[in-house]
Simulated assay, not measured.
Amino acid sequence: MESTRTVTFDFYGTLVQWHEGVEACFRDIVRRHGQPAKNLGPLIHAFHGEGRRLRDTPPWRPYRDVLRESLRFALKDGGMAMANADVDGLITGLSRLPAHGDVPAALAALRAGGWRLAAISNTDDDLIAGSLPSLGLDLDAVITAQQARAYKPDLRLFRYAHDVLGVTPQQTVHVAASQPLDMAVCKALGIRAYWVNRRAETMDPQWLPFTEVRDVAEAAVSILR
């Protein structure tokens, strides 16, 4: 198989149901604390915001630590004290996320079309492992922030991934749901990119050029065309 026929994917939100998983975890947490689960938005917003700050602030730390400290921050912001059960529930829930419904068939079609498939993810090796079976096939490579000691949008994670895969940025296609984390890197490195807009977000022209698609299935059709 030609090494230049390589598609890399963001994992959380692109291939597996990250946002749905986070919401389910927070629903369980606030229920455990005896709080209403009607409006999880502020808690989840604080969780994601603190996660970005921790990922972007040296020194590098494992994603498991980022999740724990982000949860602590969000719960404190919401007037709750984090318990061990909260952390355990979050880690367990985010360690076994199901694939989006369109993903297994799309990956299978790309594999049948002769493309290598790899994930580039802001996570730890053990955290991503439990969600991989839901993809329906084994990826050719799973490259994590833990391996590179760098989180997106740090270019070092992608450069490490390309070294592992034996390709240049221009020999790959990247498919991802995040504009500031993934499309930004693709613009900087000259990678052909597909932005998966599952959540009806607003396109930010500063990260162009990329092709906007509704899901991974639509990206796969375009790549195979």
Rank of each mutant, 00 (worst) to 15 (best):
R27T: 15
D28M: 13
I29N: 11
R31Q: 14
R31W: 03
R32F: 06
R32H: 13
G34I: 03
Q35I: 04
P36T: 10
P36V: 04
P36E: 02
P36Q: 01
K38W: 10
N39I: 12
G41W: 09
P42W: 02
P42H: 05
L43C: 10
H45Y: 01
A46C: 09
A46K: 04
A46M: 13
F47G: 00
F47A: 01
G49W: 08
E50Y: 14
E50W: 13
E50I: 05
E50L: 11
G51R: 00
G51M: 07
R52A: 12
L54W: 09
R55L: 12
R55P: 06
D56E: 15
D56G: 11
T57H: 06
P58K: 03
P59Y: 12
R61G: 02
R61V: 15
R61S: 11
P62T: 04
P62N: 05
P62W: 07
Y63M: 12
D65L: 11
V66W: 02
V66I: 15
L67S: 03
E69G: 03
E69N: 13
S70I: 13
R72F: 11
A74P: 06
A74S: 15
A74K: 05
L75G: 04
K76T: 14
K76D: 09
K76I: 09
D77N: 12
D77E: 13
G79N: 07
G79K: 05
M80Q: 09
M80K: 03
M82I: 15
M82Q: 13
M82P: 08
A83L: 15
A83H: 14
A83V: 06
N84Q: 14
A85V: 12
A85C: 11
V87C: 06
I91L: 15
I91C: 00
T92N: 08
G93Y: 09
G93P: 06
L94H: 04
L94M: 15
S95W: 07
S95L: 05
R96G: 14
R96T: 11
L97H: 01
P98L: 02
A99S: 12
A99R: 00
A99Q: 00
G101K: 00
G101W: 00
D102G: 02
D102P: 04
D102C: 02
V103T: 11
V103M: 08
V103L: 08
P104M: 08
P104A: 10
A105R: 01
A106V: 08
L110I: 12
L110W: 07
L110F: 10
L110H: 10
G113I: 07
G114T: 07
G114A: 08
G114Q: 09
W115D: 05
R116D: 01
R116C: 03
L117T: 11
A118S: 13
I120W: 03
I120C: 08
N122F: 10
T123V: 13
T123S: 14
D124M: 07
D126V: 11
L127W: 01
L127R: 00
I128K: 01
G130E: 10
G130Y: 04
L132M: 09
P133T: 06
S134F: 00
S134N: 02
S134V: 03
S134E: 01
